[in-house]
Design a protein around this nucleic acid. Structure first.
Lengths: 199, 199
DNA sequence: CGTTGATCTGAACAGGCGTTCAATTATGCT
DNA sequence: AGCATAATTGAACGCCTGTTCAGATCAACG
């Protein structure tokens, strides 16, 4: 009853699959989800449009998978960093990590913020939950600082949103090789973050 | 030689013109520039697609005009406010004004930030210049505070970008009738802004 | 009231869209 | 070598795209 084994699943899939995601990432970030056609993605991969459907059920799911992977990577990377005990070091670490991680993935970050409206309600909910989890980790740090009396913040939720928005702004203008190094930018932002929450 | 006067120029234009801009504004903000067709805009106005071309040379210019008008309104409204002499009151006024103005025009703000890539290079340059003018006014306030020794900021350009990004974040989550009033939000943000630049 | 010209319609243009699928090719296993 | 099946092609489906334009419609003026 043993049926002969066929080709290992995804023997090409292992090459074309990542290429599809990379091409979609690049094109979505560059032109926007709605302005990119499946045929353009296929051309970038070097394949016909129909072949893409071996790797995604449809265009929107391709977008969703890019976003989901990005946010899961973000949460995993942050978990790997751990959290320091003391509020100021913990917040400093969060600031440094956020700027670093987002600077390494400008395309993923851009898409994850700009293309939310192209998700179905269910997929949108998944992404929002992941993002909310990340925000909550910052809120926890802020709350700990309040409890220990070293932070003065009237509303941790709003403060977390304000700080993340501020840090995200780096991606809109920072370019490697410009006037400032990333380390200098991190220092400047840490200075503002620290003072804005300090008691 | 007096030729009989024809219909006053734009006698319908005065009605349809604004309607076109309003429909485009609403649809672009809701679905994104690339995902909205001229026929959808026309349907919202109650007209055929061809009629739109009495009011805009093409789709992209319609977007550009919305952005340009928005930023010109922003600069004019801010100029009308004047600037206080003392750095802290000036910065407080900037914070209050920014949150207020942007809260009143969520659709314009959204479009002006999200659809930049759909502009031609020339049009993009115009928008960037207008935005840069606004940013520079904040930089001026910050510089004045440094000169007077009441602000401690290592880099006014970065600080201005950081503060504006932070304030823009309000639009992504604030909803009238929610947990906080706009006045409360303004107070919370002013607290963070003030501390983040204070000497 | 008749004329004038702004406004609008409706059709056409040439092309692109996401997605499906039978047929073909390529691959790795026995 | 031969087979099972993954991977890909290429054509087709029905529909939508921005823009143009000749002709119809309309409102206000002399």
């Amino acid at each position: 009853m043993l049926r002969p084994m066929a080709r290992t699943q995804g023997s090409h899939s292992g090459i074309t699959g990542p290429k599809v995601r990379e091409a979609a990432l690049k094109l979505f970030a560059d032109k926007g989800f709605a302005a990119v056609s499946m045929r353009q993605i296929a051309a970038e991969v070097g394949v016909q449009a129909g072949a893409l459907y071996n790797y995604t059920p449809d265009k929107q799911t391709l977008l969703f998978d890019l976003m989901k992977t990005h946010l899961e990577d973000l949460l995993a990377a942050q978990e790997a960093e751990g959290t320091r005990e003391m509020p100021f070091p913990a917040l400093r670490e969060f600031t440094r990590f956020h700027i670093n991680f987002h600077n390494e993935r400008p395309e993923e970050v851009f898409i994850a913020y700009m293309e939310l409206r192209n998700l179905s309600p269910e997929n949108f909910g998944v992404i929002e939950t992941l993002r909310r989890t990340y925000e909550r980790r910052l809120e926890d740090i802020l709350q700990r600082g309040i409890d220990k009396g070293v932070f003065a913040i009237a509303d941790t939720r709003i403060a977390a949103m304000a700080l993340i928005a501020m840090l995200n702004g780096v991606n809109t203008w920072f370019r490697e090789g410009g006037r400032l190094s990333l380390a200098e930018v991190q220092e400047l932002y840490w200075d503002m973050v620290r003072k804005s929450v300090a008691a």
